[in-house]
Amino acid sequence: MSDYLRTGYLDVSDLEFPDEDIVKQHFVAVTECVQEIPCNPCVESCPVSAIKMDGINGIPHIDFEKCIGCGNCVAVCPGLAMFLVNIKEGKGRVSLPYEMLPLPNKGDTVNLLDREGKKVGIGTVIGIRQIEKDTTSSVITVEFDDTSLIKVVRNIEVVKNER
């Protein structure tokens, strides 16, 4: 594994990734939680028991065949370490947790950021799911042309709301 405790971010090669044919069928969860910490709400939130963990200090592993892409784990994860990926009609899509202001609107163009916060492209917001009643914390889905970016895009930058 990469020296993520020095750099603070993972390398794509550190991660388990679903086969392309699954990603092309529907959204699938991917996890970036690689350290043994006492935590398991993702496991509890999954309606189809697709997340396996060996005791509360275990590392989550996703059964990509089972996952139905519901996004519950993305919404609940306190580490903001769960994402959904999908390729549809030649476009890449990523759903990611977002807890900052301002929130983008559906249809907005946003900057796509990688694990170091570097801009890697632009995308369109195609979905916003508010997670909690009294906060703006949301799962945001972005769509973009370069499908290889589904392994890279992990944050967005809202380019000021011109409205």
Partner: peptide, 10 residues
């Protein structure tokens, strides 16, 4: 925890 670091880095 690494996940907290990753939140900041991105």
């Amino acid at each position: 925890y690494f996940v907290h670091a990753a939140k900041l880095r991105r």
